[in-house]
Amino acid sequence: MAAITYRNASCIYEGSDKLAVDSLNLDIADGEFVVLVGPSGSGKSTALRMLAGLEDIDEGAIEIGGKDMTGVPSKDRDIAMVFQNYALYPTKTVAENMGFALKLRGVPADERRRKVEEAAKLLDLEPFLDRKPAKLSGGQRQRVAMGRAIVREPQVFCMDEPLSNLDAKLRVQTRTQIAALQRRLGTTTVYVTHDQVEAMTMGDRVAVLRNGKLQQFASPSELYDKPVNEFVAGFIGSPAMNLVKLPVVADGVQVSENSTLDLEREQLTRLNGLSEVTIGIRPEQLEIVDSGGIEVVVDLVEDLGSEAYVYTHAGSGSGVELVARCNPRTAPKLAQTVRLRKHPDGVVHLFHPQTGARI
């Protein structure tokens, strides 16, 4: 097991004038499960490949277990990689696929078989050890790829979107298994995904990247409750946080011609003379009321069974769109006019209208 440190680690691809990963700093504890998340092109897979030795570190350094990995070949880093496409040998059985790396190391056949059987037991693959990959489901193939990594007993697991080829139900099931397995093994794990729900449910901490730069590195609850900027606020959470740029008035912000959202006095003080501000409020922190609040028109009701999300727009041509969570049994109808109010315990986040930084 080993801690991992990125120290101003940067990478630029040949022919590009823009860094794919720009001065990344991360301190990952021994045994921690860290998720790198961000939209396409954010640099998350490149950062993982730099750790694995598959991409060069052009500036800065990456350390594994306190040792600088700059210039160290991938095979000498004691890491195991799990890929999106499984990368299994089609002509070999499950047992042969899982034990192949040990065979290349010259590990005796008896020890190989013992380690493969131990991993198969952890992954519920014992009935399939003599099958070939073509006879397995997608989820089973992914578990074989996991098993191949486990038998090596590496210092670090590197996982590059390993669940993206699975259907929705199997993804939920498999990510639960991976998270539980990692906690049993205690192996330091860096996991890449574009799925923020996956990131929030699996990681001890989550690093949010955008355009090669780290935006925030924190626990899932901190990312959700205290996003450092407008990008993180909008990226983390499903449905996304309501983010609206509004003019500042005496008691709060003007949502539409006849509707104002009141802010706390302490929040108004922090605005420090701004004429407008971007406010953020989670859908679950808005409620439908009979009077008061903001008048809106219902554009769509998304009924999920246990809950419903109401997509609305404010009147008077303000262009303000808001999403609120409600009880599906009492959800309003399409095109109905309703009133929305911040829940008494709800939180309004404030972001600078130009920089997007949290105020």
Rank of each mutant, 00 (worst) to 15 (best):
M241N: 02
A218I: 02
V107Q: 12
R175A: 02
P328K: 01
L334Q: 15
D345F: 13
K132Y: 00
L136G: 08
V298H: 03
G15E: 10
G273A: 10
F217D: 04
D30S: 12
V347C: 14
D345T: 15
A61S: 12
Q196I: 07
G237A: 08
E264Q: 14
R77M: 05
Y224E: 12
L214C: 05
A134L: 13
E96D: 01
D56V: 15
T91E: 00
M159Q: 01
A240G: 07
S10K: 09
L88E: 09
E307P: 10
V197E: 03
L125T: 09
M200L: 05
F100M: 11
L304D: 05
D167M: 02
P39V: 04
T176P: 13
A47E: 09
T312M: 02
G15D: 02
L19R: 15
D299K: 10
L104G: 13
N258T: 14
L223M: 07
V310S: 12
E161P: 06
L122N: 07
H313A: 06
A119Q: 10
L340R: 11
A240M: 13
N229R: 03
P239W: 04
A240R: 13
T278K: 00
R105K: 14
G356R: 01
R265I: 14
V35R: 03
V206D: 03
Y89V: 03
V21Y: 11
V156S: 11
E198T: 00
E111V: 04
G317F: 13
C326I: 09
R148V: 08
A335C: 14
S164I: 00
A180R: 15
V232G: 06
G53I: 05
R175E: 01
A120K: 06
G139I: 06
G203P: 09
H313W: 03
S219G: 02
V21F: 12
E284N: 13
G65C: 06
G38M: 09
V348Q: 11
Y191N: 05
G252Q: 12
S164K: 07
A47S: 07
T312Q: 06
M98S: 02
V228K: 04
I12W: 11
T188K: 03
G31W: 03
A3R: 12
K44R: 09
A120N: 01
V37F: 09
A47K: 10
N242L: 06
L214Y: 08
G43F: 07
L122K: 07
M200F: 01
L48G: 01
L268V: 02
V347T: 15
M202A: 08
I279C: 07
L54W: 05
D68Q: 08
D124F: 14
D22A: 03
C11F: 13
K44Q: 00
